[in-house]
Design a protein around this nucleic acid. Structure first.
Length: 324
DNA sequence: AACATCTGGCGTCACAGTCT
DNA sequence: AGACTGTGACGCCAGATGTT
């Protein structure tokens, strides 16, 4: 895998000198007691989508090292930290740190990792999959409606999700509706406080796939039957949003209820998209973790190889010293 | 077998950053 | 400014695994 053989330019800007490409590379076999060691290394930015840079460095704390990348000479300030790691200290790094301090995107990180290090690693692609068409009608009666009732001729119970079959769906389709989903307190996200009793939000998808939301007052008879949904036609509300009632808000309690309903409407509009976004985010995260695990495995293997190499060189050296 | 704990996935909300 | 996007955090759930 390209890039794993050299120094890793860490995300924090440090150059972690853990290995060298080969013991025969220029100057690397020089005795350690020299104050200046010349290395030819390949630095691979782990988080920056640059080409691997060939580094001709004179490893000496606080001295400037010369990085030659794509024919361009770049001067960077390098210092050694307490643990023998080389750390860039030039002003560029400040800028880079600033950028990196922002919340990273798994998509970005992984794409950068894969482009810089492993062409074999698949990039996270833009999700072009079409949403599967919803063909059923699903409705959940809020759990706070502790009763059972009738909806479109079907008996439903509080907190239950029901499928509304052909007859109603056809009826809806003729009106340009494909799906209708009632969701709120069923997930526990909406409580009686957040969503005033006696109302619910109906989400439906039109023929063109656009999401529509309707706030619907629900009348429940003493016998526990859902008697009616009073849905009104769109008027002055933004496209796609249909608001049913309420009329004549006067008391602070009603105002609070209204604002709660508005909040719920806003959340409802975001919920669907966010569900998908969260799914994608988790997928990217998993892919990112996998990628990191692969890197760990490769580096561990490399470490083993280097240890073995060191051993055999030591043996060779001792053997040579004995014979002399 | 019954129960407890762990694990992974999901949906949701809040929030920060980005885009229009 | 408001919409959109990506992600962390949280709670819930179901299945797997360990313990009694």
């Amino acid at each position: 895998m390209p890039g794993f053989g050299g120094k890793q330019l860490e995300m924090d800007g440090s150059i972690d000198d853990k290995s060298e490409d080969s013991p025969s590379s220029s100057g690397s076999s020089q005795p350690q007691n020299l104050s200046t060691v010349v290395h030819t290394i390949t630095a691979v930015p782990t988080a920056i989508p640059n080409q691997p840079v060939q580094v001709q460095s004179v490893i000496q704390p606080t001295q400037q090292s010369v990085i030659q990348a794509a024919g361009q000479i770049q001067t960077v300030q390098v210092e050694e930290d307490g643990e023998g790691h080389l750390v860039r200290t030039d002003p560029d790094i400040e800028k880079r740190r600033e950028i990196l301090s922002r919340r990273p995107s798994y998509r970005k990180i992984l794409n950068e990792l894969s482009s810089a290090e492993a062409p074999g690693i698949a990039k996270i692609e833009e999700d072009k999959e079409e949403e599967a068409a919803i063909t059923s009608i699903q409705t959940t009666i809020p759990s706070y409606v502790q009763t059972s009732g009738q909806y479109g001729g079907y008996c439903i119970k509080a907190g239950q999700t029901i499928q509304i079959a052909a007859a109603n769906q056809n009826e809806l389709t003729t009106q340009g509706l494909q799906t209708i989903t009632m969701t709120n307190a069923g997930q526990g996200a909406v409580t009686a406080a957040a969503m005033p009793a006696g109302t619910t939000i109906v989400q439906y998808t039109q023929g063109d796939g656009s999401q529509q939301f309707v706030t619907v007052p629900v009348s429940i008879s003493p016998a526990g039957e859902v008697q009616a949904y009073q849905i009104r036609a769109p008027s002055s509300l933004p496209a796609g949003v249909v608001m049913a009632t309420p009329t004549g808000i006067t008391s602070p309690q009603q105002l609070a209820e209204e604002s709660a309903r508005k909040r719920e409407l806003r959340l409802m509009k975001n919920r669907y998209k966010n569900r998908e976004a969260a799914r994608e985010c988790r997928r990217r995260k998993k892919e990112y973790v996998k990628c990191l695990e692969t890197r760990v495995a490769v580096l561990e293997q490399q470490n083993k190889t280097l240890i073995e190499e060191l051993k055999s060189l030591k043996e060779l050296y001792c053997h040579k010293a004995e014979t002399e």
